[in-house]
Amino acid sequence: MQTELIAEARRQAEICNACRYCEGFCAVFPEMHADGTFSDGDITHLANLCHNCRGCYYACQYTAPHEFDLNLPKALAEVRHASWEDYAWPQPLARAFQTNGVALAIALVLTTAALFLAIFALPGDGDGFYAALSHGAMVAIFAPAFLLPLLALAISVRRFWQDMGGGTPGWSGAFGSTARMTNLAGGHGEGCNYEDEDRYTQARRMAHQCVMYGFLLCFLSTSSGTVLHYVFDAPAPYPFWSLPKLLGVPGGLLMVFGTVWLADLKRKSDRHLGHAAAWGGEMAFIGLLFLVAATGLLLYWLGATALMIPLLALHLGAVLTLFLLTPYTKMAHGAYRLAALLKHHQS
């Protein structure tokens, strides 16, 4: 772990610990004030509890030009990103994709091209998309592309857990607060100081929820398709009044809407209150989520036209990129954040 980043976050945490004015904003401060000592693992834990709402920056009487130079959202964002890179395996992949939007775009081009190749090289075996790429081929590509990165992520998060001190996770408290995104409310229920300096707004919380629930709906849609396929012997394509479509269409719409909103908010926010160098990588990641959702919806709409094949290649390429790079992009933050909350709610 980059020691200067940890040292800077620790310096700031010690000032906060003597001040405590921000205690009500989020889980970071009560965690910080619990015992007042800051091991490297403690700092990484705090960093992953922070969701960069910036409330504590605009409220701080010690921000630059004051000599104490507080900027806790930034210090924690830098440690947080460094921790994702450090725990990721293999590390160089994380270094490339966390911060670098171009790398992400190249990955997307490669996966999409690979899927084009697959579509032309492998025979289809059914209706709809399966006419282009057989169900068997899809499973052969996506099952490992889904499971292997999950395994890599699980190993990383386990190491993070151990560095935080291990122990039995506080399941109920953590899931309760994640489901409601309590911490994104800012302690008073009025949200973040994100896109308009010190004005509290709910925009970021709502946009994030659109993306998260949209993603979950799409994921459930795919899962329901798998169940229909294997258990009920009902392969795709599905009509509108079917579980995969009823989950997938609203899910896709939520994701499209949420990612556009998030990108706009991010554009308006002050980069220097986050990890400025990761801005491009994060924007590219939002773009990838948008692409996954938008191409999915377009496929539904234009699936019967000649555009189906390129759309299918692009959609599957985007999904494949998202899956493969889960441990190495912002996608991993959910797992780290959940682990940090599980630790926070431990006792």
Binding site: C19, R20, Y21, C22, E23, G24, F25, P30, H33, G55, C56, Y58, A59, C60, Q61, G187, H188, E190, D198
Partner: peptide, 29 residues
């Protein structure tokens, strides 16, 4: 916006109302 009395200042929980984020947050608002 207010918050519960800060840790280490429980003796003031009855008499003093604490500003969420402290005085600079109050001034900003």
């Amino acid at each position: 916006r207010f918050q519960p009395s800060l840790s280490g200042t429980l003796s003031l929980a009855r008499t003093n109302a604490f500003f969420l984020g402290g005085g600079k947050a109050l001034v900003n608002a």
